[in-house]
Design a protein around this nucleic acid. Sequence first.
DNA 1: GCAAAAGTGTTCTTCGTACACCCATGG
DNA 2: CCATGGGTGTACGAAGAACACTTTTGC
Lengths: 231, 231
Amino acid sequence: MTHPPFAVTVDLVVLTVREDALHALVVKRGEAPYRGRWALPGGFVQIDEDLDAAAARELQEETGLSRDDVHVEQLATYGAPRRDPRMRVVTVAYLALAPDLPSPTAGTDAADARWRSVADLLDSGRSLAFDHAEILRAGVERARSKLEYTPLAAAFCPAAFTITELRRVYQVVWGATLDPRNFHRKVTGADGFLIPTAATTTRDGGRPAMLYRCGPVTLLSPPLMRPAGQS
Amino acid sequence: MTHPPFAVTVDLVVLTVREDALHALVVKRGEAPYRGRWALPGGFVQIDEDLDAAAARELQEETGLSRDDVHVEQLATYGAPRRDPRMRVVTVAYLALAPDLPSPTAGTDAADARWRSVADLLDSGRSLAFDHAEILRAGVERARSKLEYTPLAAAFCPAAFTITELRRVYQVVWGATLDPRNFHRKVTGADGFLIPTAATTTRDGGRPAMLYRCGPVTLLSPPLMRPAGQS
DNA sequence: GCAAAAGTGTTCTTCGTACACCCATGG
DNA sequence: CCATGGGTGTACGAAGAACACTTTTGC
């Protein structure tokens, strides 16, 4: 047996911040195995399709979001021999970070796709199908560490956002509270992270806040450090 | 076409530090395609085998090293439709960090396996088979960043090593020069990184140096920072 | 005016860096 | 006794943490 046949799928950990909690996109399975259980969105890679393209296609089908709207990156690959009881399936997991969407699952294939809080989903008991709980955990951990040394927190925000909105992302993802004043100084001082716009907004209340767009850098140096010893 | 058949392989980026340069293990291909070219060691995942197990098996076959001797972690997965001209192959790349070995390829299957300097291998011109240059680059980049926030540099050292030997690893992998005195203070001060042993050695010349073993921590906080703007 | 959030200044402490200095060996 | 590397002390400056304070809106 030189090269046994495998099925290859992509699964997506799509994260967003809403209602002061981290949420992930899940779909209700319509068929066996795990029928009726929640699972990460995903599907088979087509025979002439690159892995990244398959992930982008699934994301488009499930959420209507295009690759340009959200950050997508490869997460890890899972291939335990019996992770799918039907056959040998290797799945390439992707992590996507999306802003909070007005109509989160509009125009999608999956009838029963919805946002659910990560805390709920990882609560042992009501577990996800397959090894998806493990994949979700890996995605959340990746997101947490990426906020430290990349400007990816902005991927959770609308195109123009305030410093406070950005800080809320950090607080929700890290489960920490950050000093608004030091945070403001730090991120506005980070070269290339934020581009100021002319506009301001009062949507957070109080004095009008400057709106920023995401800058061109992909790496923050020095990184923002998350306070030690939080969830 | 619901689940087209794929072949799944593992490929290994095995890195070591020798002669003051970063080296990777490569094998000469004995068959088409890319016959006679250098490639990363690897092979097909068997039908009942987990991905990590396949990587460990290939490592064992190619180097005689067991999982206990070296650090092995999943790197990334590559599956461009025509990356192998014979068929659709998805490869899960693994990164392994090994100490400098007395007889690097003793007791191996691959007749023509050897260490070659990463600088040579990535020199455009004499390129590796398939997309292995890209995979090697990803492995080296992963190793570089992992040295910052994990104690993995010790994986390049023998079981008992001196601070200077550890510093040489950092210098070679980062392509930077580090102040011996500040480095000494920093790593000996990092809680759980190094466990002092009773023994000393003069193998580096000069005054006898304390020998250390690797400690239990998996994450360094605060991280060691690599000097900005090096190769 | 008052509450609430934006944004700036200031102080204190911690940590990285640079570098002087002494120690312990081999030759 | 000298070269070589091991290891410690110290001084300076940059950066983080804590928090007082002024600014600008909505109500």
